[in-house]
Amino acid sequence: MLGSPTKLIRRGKTRNLRERSINKDYYGGVLIIIIGLGAVFGGMSYQIGTLSEMGPGFFPAAVGTLMVLTGAIIAAEGLRRKTVATDHDPPPEWRGWLCIVGGIVAFIVLGEYGGLLPATFGIVFISALGDRQNTVKNAAALAVAGCMVSTIIFWWMLQLQFPLLRWS
């Protein structure tokens, strides 16, 4: 199995021994180019200056230029290997993703307008629902346990500056 350890390292993820999908390289490269361009334009708007008297924009613009270059290499590499078999990734996990993101958003919103307890309940309950094996009852029980931890450990013992409940 370990005929070629370097190959295992190269592959990025050890569990994944299949050829990488062309799309991943291509889109990854494009993403890096876009971010790099953003940095270059941002840097230009902050004053580039000269080599001996650098303005705040010099470094971001330089980093951005390098990003565009590396991004182009990555994307070109992705295009070149078009014939290679693609990666079979598991299907998108929308439920899990939505619940994790939703849970954190709930923490922010409920924390702002409700306080620590509703925020805690929200993040644990909603994100727990993201796992297909959790039932509503399970998730609620876990959320209640989370509230107790928040109250006892964070609010009471560690004196977290976050009111348990707030009205406004």
């Binding site: 994790i100 849970g103 954190i104 923490f107 924390g111 925020a119 805690t120 993040i123 644990v124 309950f125 994100s127 727990a128 796992d131 094996q133 959790n134 399970n138 998730a139 876990l142 959320a143 989370g146 931890v149 928040s150 964070f154 560690l158 977290l160 500056q161 976050f162």
Partner: peptide, 17 residues
């Protein structure tokens, strides 16, 4: 399924603090 919601709570509170 119990682990990651709890860890998420710690992360949120940790960042807040």
């Amino acid at each position: 399924r119990y682990l990651f919601p709890s860890a998420l709570l710690f992360i949120a509170i940790g960042c807040y603090s």
